[in-house]
Amino acid sequence: MDERAPSEAVIEIENLVAHYGDRQILNGVSLTVEKGEIMVIMGGSGSGKSTLLRHLLGLKKPTSGSIRLLGKDITKISKKEIYQLRRDMGVAFQGGALFGSMTVGENVQLPLREHTKLDEKTMQIMARMKLEVMNLAGFEDLMPSELSGGMVKRAALARAVIMDPKLLFFDEPSAGLDPVVSAELDELILRLRNAMNMTIVVVTHELESAFKIADRITMLDLGNILITDTVENVRNSDIERVQNMLNRRPREVDVDTEAYLRRLTGQKH
């Protein structure tokens, strides 16, 4: 395989079907993410975007379908191979998910501590370097509870990229942040891609942020992909549901009077 081939897929999802309990959340989703691109997965609440992310991270087993990350099908490979693969993956969770019992610095160092045999000093320096990139220099001795929302996200991002992963996943970077901080975070994501040439998958429902950072956008709705295309093409799409999402129009609910009456009266059938 040629590393510099322009169309090298690092994430290939094929026909992914997923259930939560008895409910089907994803109805055969297929998606490909190229090396070095920023793919934004969008969708409203209940669209299945969080479920899709959990499957991409290997936190859930799909009902059927395959997910290939860096050429390895994570639904089939052994635990040991997944463990190896995790070195090349970084994840920044929505709420940061920093460990409350450790300082910011220890949080950032944790992946190094677990995956490498570097000495203490080197790990500290590496953690400081990443925190510096995230504009968090000097905060390594604070506890996560002492940080603001934006700082927590940046610290989580520092932890996610400490191993210089090939793949970075970011769940709802703008959630709970004010517009300025959120814009700074978008800048940071772009800088990271340019500096480290990572492939980045961002899950968000924030339109502005999506348009700013994305190379391509995938829009999910009720467990189906509506569109996967460049920012320009998504904007100009003539699919009604896509335009609804872009223009913040409420969904039209099909009214089935019979079913409505049955629900009201509590009849099952």
Binding site: L57, F93, A97, L110
Partner: peptide, 17 residues
Amino acid sequence: GTMLESQEVDALRVIGI
């Protein structure tokens, strides 16, 4: 339970722990 709810357990798993 708190770690589970704040996704810290997920964070451990994706780090490979």
